[in-house]
């Protein structure tokens, strides 16, 4: 119950923050913003002073900031995100359209990172200080030092430009997934391998781990029955926090490879000062984080009934 309440408070604060930030963004649009927006909407040939004035009034760009702020937040709390300043379409439709593409990419990346990272981390954590452990430490530090956009760049250069194995950009076929998902997954795996390694090392150093062996269970049995379950809780909690890293990666990588997702749309919206789109996307990403973490909290509470977290 506590989990739900604190996550709800977080969600509300996220919405307020996004609302305030995007309102400030709206107010700081350069003077000819109404013209630009009207032009974007009706085409440059059809813009006149009246159309610009209509846009100005609609967005509350003139007048005192306070009533405008209240009405802005009011719209937000009614979940009325308005229309895109660029396409004129309702923001909600635009986002619904792009969310799917991003979601699949994110899931593919997380799945791939979980296949790579935690197994290596657990192996290292079982023998802390061993050659394998130290090698993994070095490799994961190196991978962590490569930003995701750079990883994508390197993969594009190596796998598609040089080798020609994969398309550098594009969307629609399974093979289009491999490159962006791998670019995201390698960075995530570098970190969650470390988390899994530390969790495993700390679990293996607990008295109950040794005790399970003293009961007569084999190493593999102890790992399977007592190790993995205990490692999963910190790993899950960490995955929830990693969501932000994932989203940032998605934003950048989608732009890199022209993936028609929410991140790509966000960068475009920021570039075009399409504030309602920025607000809608930011809110969607922030609330997505809260939702994912709430689910992870509930799952972790099921695995670990101590209620410590």
């Amino acid at each position: 119950m506590n989990i739900v309440i604190s996550r709800l408070a977080q969600a509300v604060t996220v919405a307020l923050l996004v609302g305030a930030a995007t309102f400030a963004m709206m107010r700081s649009l350069p003077g000819d913003a109404a013209w630009r927006i009207a032009a974007g909407r009706y085409g440059y040939d059809n813009v006149d002073a009246a159309a610009a004035e209509a846009v100005r009034a609609e967005l509350g760009l003139g007048g005192h900031w306070f009533p405008a702020f209240l009405s802005w937040m009011g719209d937000l709390l009614r979940l009325d995100f308005g229309r895109s300043l660029v396409s004129g379409q309702p923001v909600i439709d635009e986002i619904a359209h792009q969310l799917g593409a991003s979601l699949w990419l994110a899931l593919a990346a997380v799945g791939l990172s979980l296949v790579i990272g935690p197994p290596l981390g657990i192996l290292a954590g079982l023998r802390p200080g061993s050659l394998f452990d130290r090698a993994l430490l070095v490799i994961s530090a190196a991978f962590k030092a490569v930003p995701q956009f750079l990883m994508a760049l390197i993969l594009i250069l190596v796998l598609s430009v040089q080798m020609g194995w994969l398309p550098a950009a594009g969307y629609g076929q399974p093979r289009h997934f491999i490159l962006p998902a791998l670019a995201l997954a390698l960075g995530l795996a570098a970190v969650n391998a470390r988390i899994a390694r530390d969790a495993m090392a700390s679990v293996a150093a607990q008295p109950f781990y040794a005790f399970a062996e003293w009961k007569g269970l084999s190493r593999a049995q102890v790992l399977w029955r007592h190790g993995l379950r205990n490692v999963s809780v910190p790993l899950l909690t960490y995955l929830g926090l990693q969501f932000v890293l994932l989203v940032e990666g998605v934003v950048v990588i989608e732009s890199n490879v022209g993936w028609p997702g929410i991140g790509h749309a966000l960068v475009h919206a920021v570039f075009a000062r399409d504030v309602p789109m920025v607000q809608g996307t930011a809110l969607m990403l922030g609330l997505g984080f809260v939702l994912v973490n709430a689910l992870i909290d509930l799952l972790a509470a099921r695995i670990d009934p101590r209620g410590a977290r």
Binding site: F211, A212, K215, L217, R229, P305
Partner: peptide, 19 residues
Amino acid sequence: WGRQIAVLPQEPWLSLDPL
């Protein structure tokens, strides 16, 4: 272990898997 010698560790409440 377990078959010939049984070991009761220090602080047994830390010796049970908490999960």
